[in-house]
Simulated assay, not measured.
Amino acid sequence: MPQQPLLSKEQKENLAILEPQLKSCVRSADLERAKRITGKIQNLLRPTGHETRILQAKNWLYETAMEANSLTFAKMGFEGTIQKSNKNTRLHLEAISLLAICYLREANLDRSRDLIIKAVESINNIKSEDRRKQFHRRLIERLEEESILVGLKDESGTPLALEEVDQHTIKLVMTKSENQIYLEMGQAVPQRSIDLLSDVRDTYTMRLPGPDRKLLPSPITEENKEELGKRASSALKRVAWRAVCSPNSEIYKAWSQGLSVVYDKKYIAGAIVASFNSVSISAVMIAASAAALAIKFGAEVFCETFAPNSMMIDRKEKS
């Protein structure tokens, strides 16, 4: 792709507003808003031939689609980015990585494995060891989180019952510390999730040069239930955060009245149960642990700590 022309002052000013708005759509999974903002960015940049910057915006759009569970739209978009971008660029690598996640979410493990291998091979194009380490950490941790989520989903499972989840939530809040709640969550992670974790890790390291293996974070093992619970909690933030932290939700508004209002009306457990049922997660202790953590953290800390992050690297990041 030819070298991009310099951005005008007007383009820079507009992008400084539009791009953060677009990136925020990934967190909220607001696909319709992401489409509108991407259209504005495309109209702003296309006349001057800034195609690479447009592709970057579209990657955020497709990642938003992935988070909104519009996987067909997301897959087609990432395939387009892969075809149009230079193979040695971060943009190309991010599209391959996110496409691998799409297929992992569909439990299409064969296709996901192929893309994980391609992504690992592409990471070798990053010359800086610090940046390779950064991308390895982001990708392997995200793939492990997605593996846990896939293993938790059970289309044939019995939907969660609010009363049962709420009872366990109250018990956890009253009797367990934060680390003990993570332990409870880790013990409730099903074997399928653990097997997927191992499979993804093996696939990832298969084509990884020996020296780069030391750049990976330590693996999550079945024996360390507390760490497994922490990783499960991180995985579930993509479900729990939107249930609890959307500024337009009743639970978020109630939080402004004080935690007791939310707790008494079972707002947190109810939001968690509804969101988990919507994605076929039916493990009672997983849901109760997530609700208990939300209560223990409190609104502001929970919503900041558990906010989902984009896989894509911000242009301003240096390491």
Results as ranks from 00 to 15, higher is better:
Y263T: 05
L139I: 12
E223K: 11
D130R: 13
I96R: 09
T52G: 05
M1L: 12
E222W: 01
Y263S: 06
K40Q: 15
A288Y: 03
M174N: 13
N248F: 09
I268T: 15
I194F: 03
D264H: 04
Q4F: 04
N14I: 04
P159C: 05
G39T: 11
T203V: 14
V273P: 07
E106D: 09
A299C: 10
E13K: 11
S234P: 00
I123N: 02
A188C: 10
L197M: 09
I194L: 04
K118C: 09
R131L: 15
R53Q: 14
M185N: 05
T221R: 10
L143C: 03
I286S: 02
E19M: 15
M1W: 08
E223L: 06
K75Q: 15
G77N: 01
G49V: 09
T221L: 13
N108K: 14
R132W: 05
I37M: 09
T48K: 12
T203S: 11
F302L: 06
I220L: 07
T205A: 04
P190F: 09
S218M: 13
A57D: 07
A107R: 15
A232Y: 00
C303K: 04
P190S: 04
I17R: 09
S218Y: 01
E226T: 11
M174E: 15
Q134W: 11
A271Q: 10
C303E: 06
M285N: 15
G77H: 03
D314H: 10
K316N: 14
L93I: 07
A161K: 15
L115F: 09
